[in-house]
Amino acid sequence: MIQSSGGDHDISPDAIKKLQAARESILQQLSKVIVGQQDVIDELLISIFSRGHCLLEGVPGLAKTLLISTLARTLNLSFSRIQFTPDLMPADITGTEVIEEQPGGALQRRFMEGPLFANVILADEINRTPPKTQAALLEAMQERQVTVGRVRHGLSDPFFVLATQNPIEQEGTYPLPEAQQDRFMFKVLVDYPSFDEELEVARRTTSRVNTQVDAVLTGEEILELQDLVRSVPVADHVIRYALAIVRQTRVGSEGVPDFVRDQIGWGAGPRAVQFLVLGGKARALLNGRTHVTVEDIQELCRPVLRHRMVVTFAAESDGISTDDVIDRLVRETPTAEDELTRDARFQKIFAS
């Protein structure tokens, strides 16, 4: 058994096997409905086991909503779908207080829970609603509670917000505020399927097939697996590597590369480091390891950082995306501990 860095839990081989078995069972159930999208599914699972929220972006028709609703069915949890529209109000999702007449004529105030009071929330087309309603999710996502009429109401545990959105350049959308984007652990880009995948989609969706998806995990089991993820030890040099990547995105700080200064308007905050490390822990366990490697951090840089960085107008005009900048940072950041500590530029980054 391996002792965690915090010293509170042990990670047994049986626990690792349980997490891997849960992943395989979920994938088996999802494959009954979803064709391909393996990377998207893996990032969704990492987010869930890390106790994070996930934002999926892609053009209409790529089965984003179907993927999330099917995933919710594989978990024995309460599920709520919120269709975000331009006329949706904050109370429509958080709930509201009503006054009811009791027997005898007395009036009593009662809170009517909104659709946020479920374990899994599908926030469908979240960028179709104005920022005022989008902001109603902030407290729920961060604090796992909502405040209505000066009264705080706790939400269910586990609690996940799995949101979908169309690309910003589509008509009739409202860009998510930066503070809200930062609450999402991952931003996952859903791309078009390959030819063979689309061929299989066409076959399945045009035939009379009624697929039954079974639940494979309970809420208690998910909470146990989330605790297990946080018990995974992480070496200091891996955390330092995550810090090196994130701190290089902060324009105006010491040691930031010239290409970042030219191409990035602003960079990622401390949550990015936290989510890189947590996601690395979940990815390590899902791959049967009890320690986090630099490769785990590298694989998660895109989904963790792409919505926490904004490219400049000049860079965007040249066709440079945040993923391009992230990939270059990963290529040019030393992975060895001694190289990071010897490099004068990184000494400035860690000292600033």
Rank of each mutant, 00 (worst) to 15 (best):
S78D: 14
T133V: 03
L137R: 01
I126E: 05
R73Y: 04
M89L: 15
N76A: 12
S69G: 03
E113G: 11
M141C: 05
S69Y: 04
S156C: 13
I99L: 08
N76I: 01
R128T: 11
E139A: 03
L67K: 05
A163R: 05
L75D: 02
G105A: 02
S156N: 15
T133E: 07
A136I: 03
K132S: 09
D124C: 10
G58Y: 08
P131C: 08
V146S: 04
N127Y: 02
L138H: 13
I82R: 05
H53D: 05
N166T: 09
N166G: 03
R152T: 15
A63D: 10
V146K: 01
Q83T: 13
Q142Y: 02
L107E: 14
L138D: 13
P103S: 09
I82C: 06
D124P: 09
T74L: 00
L71G: 00
E139W: 02
T133L: 05
S156Q: 15
I99F: 10
R109L: 13
Q83I: 13
L122V: 12
A140W: 04
L155N: 07
V161K: 02
Q145G: 10
F159H: 13
E97D: 13
A118P: 08
I121C: 11
R73S: 12
Q83D: 13
I93Y: 13
E100W: 00
H153L: 01
N119G: 05
Q134E: 11
N76Q: 13
V120G: 06
A136S: 12
G95W: 11
M141G: 04
M112I: 15
